[in-house]
């Protein structure tokens, strides 16, 4: 598979995840540095969600992806809303 095709495919899924998804933290990686909260344009305390291991379910979140992109430790990711809302077995 060529690089441009891989890049295009990644971009598509990235955009789709942003439209359909929520930001989900992996709190086993978070070190509470606060880069996520500092870079949130809306002022959401993303770090607090990460500490508590909760998806960022804030009506004001525009899923701009700043927190996901800036986290130096890969704590945050987009996850499809449907999957996040699924009851855990």
């Amino acid at each position: 598979m060529t690089h441009w095709w891989k890049a295009l495919r990644a971009l598509f899924w990235q955009q789709k995840a942003r439209m359909d998804g929520v930001v989900v933290p992996d709190n086993s990686r978070c070190v509470q540095c606060g880069i996520c909260s500092y870079n949130c344009p809306i002022g959401i305390d993303v770090r607090r969600y990460a500490w508590e291991g909760r998806p960022i379910r804030d009506d004001h979140c525009v899923t701009c992806g700043q927190c996901v992109a800036r986290c130096p430790r890969g704590v945050l990711r987009f996850e499809a809303l449907a999957r996040t809302l699924q009851p855990t077995p």
């Binding site: 070190v31 509470q32 540095c33 606060g34 880069i35 500092y38 500490w51 130096p72």
Partner: peptide, 21 residues
């Protein structure tokens, strides 16, 4: 405060106030 965050305070990516969760 976030001790691992000191590295990002040093690089200037966050101000000192952000170190306190």
């Amino acid at each position: 405060y976030s001790r691992p965050g000191l590295a990002y305070y040093l690089t200037g990516e966050i101000p000192e106030a952000m170190l306190f969760p």
